[in-house]
């Protein structure tokens, strides 16, 4: 292949039809309150990890729903499991459990980091 000094770029668009949402299905099955998120960002505002890393639980919630799992994988390990997000959530989402379940789902479904 010729080297042109440039090459095509992977699209940024979330391709909903191509993405895999088995991680989301696993969370929804075990933590139905996840459906109630309205993206207010209260969780992310109070997050200990968000202060020093690019972790945002608000964003993780959205990415999980779209099946953008690679980005979730990168971000979720920053969580220190302090539980403040669950304390502030106005919709009563058990956010701490969402994090547990996400980690579990990656391990179970992806055979990831076993």
């Amino acid at each position: 292949m010729k080297n042109f000094g440039f090459s095509s770029i992977k699209p940024r668009v979330i391709d909903y039809d191509k993405n895999n949402r088995t991680v989301l299905d696993y969370i929804m099955e075990h933590e139905p309150s996840f459906a109630l998120c309205i993206g207010c960002g209260g969780c992310a505002a109070t997050c200990s990890a968000a202060r020093f890393t690019d972790m945002s639980l608000r964003k993780i919630n959205i990415l999980l729903k779209r099946g953008e799992n690679d980005e979730v994988r990168r971000l979720i390990n920053k969580c220190m499991l302090c539980g403040k997000c669950t304390l502030v959530c106005p919709r009563g989402v058990n956010t701490r459990n969402v994090i547990f379940l996400t980690q579990q789902a990656f391990k179970k479904l992806d055979n990831y980091a076993v």
Binding site: R12, I14, Y16, K59, I62, E68
Partner: peptide, 12 residues
């Protein structure tokens, strides 16, 4: 635009 993800989205 999935504004909460900060990325465009396409869907059928």
């Amino acid at each position: 635009e999935d504004t909460l993800a900060g990325r465009p989205l396409k869907m059928q």
